[in-house]
Amino acid sequence: MANDKPKGVLVDLTRCIGCRGCQVACKQWNERSVKKTVLTGNFTNPPELNSECYTNIKYIEQEKNGEPAWNFIKNQCLHCKNPACASVCPVEALKKTKDGPVTYTFERCIGCRYCMLACPFYVPKYEWEKAVPWVRKCTFCSERVANGLVPACIKVCPTQTMYYADYDEVRAEAEKRMADSPGKYVNHIYGKDEAGGTSWIYISGVPFETLGFNMAIPAQVFPDLTWSYINKIPSVIGVVLVAGAVSWAITRRNKNTDKEE
């Protein structure tokens, strides 16, 4: 399936049974270890993504029409179309590839962790405890994708919760499912516009805000927010240099003039 078109994933939250086969498959493929956990009263474990856990399922309970309702949210890097993390990275350790995955190359990383500040979804995690620390996040199984294979989490899912294809097909599938079953899904595709659009998009049977999704992410490409300022820096530097040179020249001339008098 490797072609030149970027890939995407539709996560249909009405299909997930919360089995967490995806969470384990990811650990196996990426050779992750574990962190010590306790049961907090909610089954989400680990409670947040961390350097050993690229994806987890969040368990959200609620009530719908007086009956219990339970939803399971597949949580991982959304592989933004125009990622803030790659934009702020001074050394291009994080990069948006043409296949879709936002990849991390450790050899380039200088550990500034600007990416962790920049990501609106708080995805990248850091190996604080290691002497040679990496930034860690979901890789969208970039090597598998590049070789025509399906990402590990998607491969093991028994209920086809995730639909993996070229991004355009994935978008079309989301819209088709919503049109085919009126009333089944809420009228929102999460990731369509948030942060300027993400490769992983979600459709849901209950409102996203009840599932812990951040609804305040602007529908704007994040790097654009600072671009209008950053792109002026060369000009500013130029102006400062010229102003500095003129100021030096005038000061020097004045000093010489003073000396002569």
């Binding site: 967490r20 969470q23 384990v24 650990k27 196996q28 992750r32 270890s33 574990v34 962190k35 010590k36 956990t37 306790v38 049961l39 089954f43 474990n45 680990p46 856990c53």
Partner: peptide, 12 residues
């Protein structure tokens, strides 16, 4: 299996 115990660590 650490991956499994991490997800479900304790009697409840």
């Amino acid at each position: 299996v650490p991956w499994l115990l991490e997800m479900m660590p304790q009697q409840f």
